[in-house]
């Protein structure tokens, strides 16, 4: 009895999860809008040590890099995990495949970077690695969608 109930519960939660696991279609454009400024801010922060003076707390701690990291991650999430116009089972498959490929490429890049980059430069690899899985996933997924649209 309990077994069947838990089974039903599991099936039901699966349905709920698949329905909730993607953002609404309208969120995608906000992702694209926020991506560019946060990407530029992140690059400036890392390479030029740029910072906003109004984000300074305690006189020495600046929150600009935190803002850039969080903004970039959220905008990439909105782009990658919003529903497309016609979200059907093939899109689901393509999504899963894009994730698999992004993990492969990401770790391949890490291996290459580990072999050729040392010391403090390696910190840069780790900083970039915060975003590369999502970045590669988003680009592979959209490349596949682009190819699909031409059919």
């Amino acid at each position: 009895m309990i077994f069947t109930e838990s089974k039903v519960c599991f099936a039901y939660s699966k349905v709920i999860f698949t329905k909730l696991s993607l953002f609404n279609q309208s969120y995608k454009k906000w992702g694209w809008i926020f991506l560019v400024p946060f990407l530029v801010l992140g690059l400036l922060c890392w390479h030029q040590e740029f910072s906003f003076s109004f984000l300074e707390i305690n006189g020495f701690n600046n929150l600009t890099d935190e803002l850039a990291i969080i903004g970039l991650i959220i905008s990439l999430f909105l782009i990658g995990f919003s529903k497309v116009k016609e979200e059907d089972e093939m899109i689901y498959t393509i999504r899963a495949e894009a994730m698999r490929i992004s993990i492969y490429i990401n770790y391949l890049l890490i291996i290459i970077a580990t072999l050729f980059i040392y010391d403090w430069d390696y910190l840069g690899v780790m900083a970039y690695n915060l975003f590369t899985p999502l970045l590669i996933y988003v680009s592979v997924f959209h490349f596949k969608l682009f190819r699909l649209r031409k059919l």
Partner: peptide
Amino acid sequence: IGVSRQTINSIEKGKYIPSTLL
């Protein structure tokens, strides 16, 4: 059947294998 035209196209070309439900 509630999918996109591209899905039907891919199935016809043998590029995509549909689920049992579809």
